[in-house]
Each structure stands twice: as structure tokens, then as C-alpha cells.
Design a protein around this nucleic acid. Structure first.
Length: 237
DNA sequence: CCAGACGTTGTT
DNA sequence: GTCTGG
DNA sequence: CCAGACGTTGTT
DNA sequence: GTCTGG
């Protein structure tokens, strides 16, 4: 799963890391939520072009946008055969830059679920494996949308969750974006759990729960509320 | 044939 | 409980 | 993902 | 659009 994430990096840094054709028009984000605009990287005539797409894939045949709210993730195990994702998987793959993501675990004593922040120790941006589609309303408005692929967790994430987003290593970005007639198996082979090396997992406060909450406060841990000792969740794999 | 679904995660 | 909105 | 609504008629 | 269920 992956229902919230961060992208705090500045546009120039993203141009360098993802080899973009131009600066993406974004501000630092600490709480990117479903239905909001998401930065995606797509291949256009051989160039990596940044765009902002609505999060939650809406297939071209949908009657309205509402189906997208339940299509923020796509299972990598079945994405090649599901009617909703198959064509996008074959022809409309993208990278979704991020530099952290949130997952929730059951709270103690039946309390509220506890958000955990997953990120690289140096906070370097990484890339989710994504798909996109284009939808036209009856009024003729075109809306481009995207989804993030999920897979089984690696050994570290498995302590907390049954699923994790597909995070592509940099040397697979070009293959994922390519529209060449590479066999589906080649592409599917990229959809594996990320190596946990270099990742950290930290509990954060409940501010992030509110989709409209934005800014560094989303990563803060209220000192007045006792939290589970952070050490229990810190991994330097 | 037509009608209806088409998706994911976790369920405190 | 289930759906919609962000 | 979580938060918040979830309904109708008629109008302060 | 495409697939499944009846």
C-alpha cells in the first residue's frame, strides 16, 4: 500500500536526478494525498518530461472520476491482466518521484492507528513505479490520472505491513519508461520489493492523518504525547 | 445475447 | 457500515 | 491513506 | 473498452 507520501526536494534537484527536460512546477510537499496533483515523469519522444497528474487512476471508459479514489494503488501481481490497468501497464508507465511515504500500523490498546514515515537516511528522492491514463469528461475536459504499484514487503517492512510500494532502482528507470516491445515478463520482473538498505522508519504525529494538513508539522512528533520508543522502529539496514 | 463490473487496503 | 473528498 | 458524511422538505 | 455472470 501507499496512501500518502512526501516530495520535499526542489525542482532543480529533481531535474538533475531524473534527467528532466525542464523544471517541474512544484512546491515542497509533506502530505500528498489521493486526488491531489502528483508529479510524474513520462517518456515523450525519448525525453523525460515532468507533469502533474491527479492521483487515482481513472480509465478512459469511466463514467466519472469517482473510480479513481479506489485506484490509488495497483497490485503488481495482477496489473498485467486487470481490465482497469492492463493497457496502462503495456503502454503508459511512468515514474512517480517521492522522498518519503507514510504507512499506518494498529494503535496500542485499540487507539488510533500510528503513522510511520519511511524514507532514505539521506532523504534522497526515489521513484515509485507508476501507471497513468487519460479520461475525457462529457464536457470535453481531459483529466490525466496516475496510480502507484504495490508488491509484497521486504524483510524490514514486513514487520509492519503486508504490502509496500514498488520503488525502482535508478538503473531500472529507463527500462520501466521504455515503450519498446520488451516482453511483458521483462517489465514485470522489475516489480519486486525494494532493498531495505539505507531506509529508515520513524513514527510521526497524527497531524498527517488530515489530508489538508501540509508542511513540516506532518513529520513532527508531539513531545507531550508518549510515543513508542523511536528506537524500536529505526532501522539502519 | 445483455447487464454490470472494472480497484486497493485493512477492518483501530 | 460504506461511500466520498482531499 | 484518513476524515467526515450519511437525508428531506421547505425556508430565518 | 473488455471481461464475467446469468
Amino acid at each position: 500500500m501507499c496512501g500518502r507520501f512526501t516530495l520535499r526536494a526542489n525542482p532543480a534537484e529533481l531535474v538533475e536526478i531524473f534527467e528532466l527536460t525542464r523544471l517541474p512546477e512544484i512546491s515542497p510537499r509533506y502530505n500528498i494525498a489521493p486526488t491531489q496533483p502528483v508529479l510524474v515523469v513520462r517518456l515523450d519522444r525519448g525525453f523525460r518530461v515532468p507533469s502533474l497528474l491527479r492521483w487515482g487512476l481513472v480509465p478512459h471508459w469511466a463514467k466519472d472520476l469517482s473510480i479513481g479514489a479506489r485506484a490509488i494503488n495497483a497490485r503488481s501481481e495482477t496489473v498485467h491482466e486487470k481490465p482497469m490497468f492492463r493497457q496502462a501497464f503495456e503502454r503508459r508507465r511512468c515514474l512517480i518521484p517521492a522522498d518519503g511515504y507514510y504507512e499506518w500500523i494498529p494503535g496500542e490498546e485499540g487507539g488510533k492507528r500510528q503513522p510511520l514515515f519511511h524514507h532514505l537516511a539521506d532523504d534522497r528522492p526515489f521513484a515509485f513505479a507508476g501507471l497513468w491514463d487519460s479520461w475525457d469528461s462529457l464536457e470535453g475536459e481531459t483529466v490525466e490520472t496516475c496510480t502507484i504499484l504495490t508488491t509484497t514487503p521486504n524483510d524490514v517492512v514486513a514487520q509492519f505491513h503486508d504490502r509496500m510500494p514498488v520503488i525502482l532502482p535508478e538503473d531500472h528507470w529507463t527500462t520501466w519508461l521504455s515503450s519498446s516491445e520488451s516482453s511483458g515478463a521483462d517489465i514485470r520482473g522489475l516489480l519486486v520489493p525494494a532493498d531495505p538498505t539505507g531506509w529508515k522508519i520513524t513514527p510521526v504525529g497524527f497531524a498527517v492523518n488530515r489530508a489538508t494538513c501540509e508542511g513540516p508539522v506532518c513529520l513532527s512528533v508531539p513531545s507531550n504525547t508518549p510515543q513508542t520508543p523511536p528506537g524500536q522502529f529505526n532501522f539502519d539496514a
